[in-house]
């Protein structure tokens, strides 16, 4: 009488757990990072409970089965929590693969008289645990990618501040290369800043942009045009000699935009068009 593998594991749950904890203790890589043995024991017990609970004749064959959702969710959260605690992915993987040792040992105890059955069961268990390992790795990498994505978004946000220089004048220094995604952020922030402050002049300072090619120039022209549509004026400042050289060599026509060499001259122009005047106060008169 052959007992299905999930039945064996269900009846031998305690044995599996006991063996797994033993293997973990032998493997210093797994055990020495945990604060307490109790913590490890609690986690492993939960793991085995969920694993045995979700195994049946379908799920043991098909890892993508929806019945395994509880298990996959648990593995994902386990991987994330272990990654937060500072475990390397190798440690987490070793932790999962030690379970395979325990399971195989239980199976061999049970089926020692039936090598054919044992062989088949071993392959099933191996595949199953390998899938859990892969899932854990996937979760780990997805988590990493999320962090990277978040950071690059934050960087884009940080590097495009809109500064209100004067009543009615905004300035936006751009540091770093302007690509399409960044231009979008720059444009959105600048236009929103114009709406929020009701400014009629925006200064885009590109002295921190390392190189201007035709694509960057295209983006700049787009931004200037969008500002104009909003009813404000956009001045490009901080055009370094090298930038002027490349722009002319590439044959890009910037003549329709107001361009200034420095932020200072852009500010002067802005004051002029707002009919403002900056003067030195005359001390003699005061005295």
């Amino acid at each position: 009488m052959e007992t299905p593998i999930f039945e064996i594991l269900r009846s031998k749950k305690d044995r599996v757990l006991q063996l797994w904890l033993q293997v973990q203790q032998m493997d210093t890589e797994v055990s020495n990072n945990y604060n307490t043995a109790d913590e490890l024991r609690a986690q492993s017990t939960e793991f085995v409970d969920i694993l045995v609970g979700s195994l049946n004749e379908n799920t043991v064959q098909d890892f993508s089965s929806p019945e395994l959702e509880a298990l996959t969710d648990y593995i994902s959260s386990l991987t994330i929590s272990r990654a937060r605690q500072g475990f390397s992915p190798r440690e987490t993987a070793t932790y999962i693969f030690t379970l395979k040792d325990a399971l195989l040992k239980v199976l061999s105890e049970q089926n020692s008289d039936n090598p054919q059955q044992l062989y088949q069961d071993s392959i099933l268990v191996s595949k199953f645990i390998d899938n859990i390992g892969i899932l854990s790795f996937e979760t780990f990498i997805t988590g990493r990618e999320d962090v990277i994505f978040q950071q690059s978004e934050e960087m884009a946000e940080l590097s495009t501040p809109v500064i209100r220089v004067w009543n009615g004048i905004l300035a936006m220094p751009i540091i770093g290369t302007l690509d399409s995604a960044r231009t979008q952020v720059v444009m959105e922030n600048l236009l929103q800043g114009i709406v929020d402050t009701g400014s009629s002049i925006a200064i885009l300072d590109i002295s921190g942009v390392p190189a201007v090619d035709s694509l960057v120039a295209q983006h700049l022209i787009k931004t200037v045009n969008a500002t104009r549509l909003m009813g404000a004026e956009c001045i490009i400042s901080g055009i370094r000699p090298e930038i002027a050289q490349t722009v002319v060599h590439l044959g890009i026509d910037l003549s329709q935009m107001i361009t200034k060499a420095t932020l200072e001259s852009a500010l002067k122009f802005a004051f002029n068009s707002l009919q403002l005047e900056v003067r030195r106060t005359q001390r003699e008169k005061l005295n």
Partner: peptide, 19 residues
Amino acid sequence: VVGMQPAVAITLIELGLPL
């Protein structure tokens, strides 16, 4: 034309309609 929303301005520019 007054009071254009930022999203509208960006859309028009992307459509190649600088008006």
